[in-house]
Design a protein around this nucleic acid. Structure first.
Lengths: 114, 114
DNA sequence: ACAGTGTATTCGAAAATTCGAATATTCTAA
DNA sequence: TTAGAATATTCGAATTTTCGAATACACTGT
């Protein structure tokens, strides 16, 4: 496989390599959401969400649709959802280590739980 | 989903987010290989391969087995191969854009082709 | 035209990643 | 024990990523 193709793949993974962007994609997996929805559901700075959306857009992982004031985002290719689903299985298989790797966890309950 | 779990996922993706590490994992998908094999097949500095292997080890994506002088690596969980396979399908779907995104490509033939 | 709401961009500064060079470590064979 | 091969680690500089703050832009209603 050409190295240039691997560079492309690496860029996609790079786009996935941030907790906030994973959260965004998981939310979008359930269907379209506006930028504002994401800000509200994730409890993260508007500017920051917008920056992460810019990353996802630049790698074409999401598409957007403007409706008046708002911009609605969705996952472009359902394969991405499959990838995330596979990863969920992976994490179930290795939850143990996940916890160990993260070390804290026990007392760090994380802000935005559902 | 807890934020800490998303951080863990992001770390896995981060580990996948480098062309050399993708190349390593794709090679290992075909079966065990020694560090030296990887150096030779990828044509990359020994120290650098070793650094990338350290990243993959630290995220537990690979396991290693020492045999005398050498260290043999393999992918720990076959799900990873599935993820990479899914990604290959993704790239086929979007090859067009991949080429556009990479821009150069036409004249950048990449060093290590098969 | 103006104000207000929703979203995007720009600008630093701090943190993380990457690589080659140099050096260590570990094992084997003599 | 010494030499050599295979692999790993450390160091520092260059690059990239990340975030908040400030600002810009776009659309709507009045």
């Amino acid at each position: 496989m050409p190295d240039s193709l691997r560079r492309f793949k690496a860029e996609i993974f790079q786009a996935l390599a941030h907790p906030t962007r994973i959260a965004i994609l998981e939310l979008l997996g359930a269907g379209e959401a506006s930028a504002g929805d994401l800000v509200e559901k994730l409890g993260i700075e508007q500017a920051n969400i917008s920056q992460h959306l810019a990353v996802l857009r630049s790698k074409q992982l999401v598409v957007n649709r403007k409706a008046g004031n708002q911009v609605f985002y969705s996952v472009r290719d359902p394969i991405l959802n499959d990838v995330l689903a596979l990863m969920r299985r992976y994490f179930q298989n290795h939850l143990q280590e996940a916890y160990e790797m993260l070390g804290e966890m026990a007392q760090a309950p994380a802000e935005s739980e559902k």
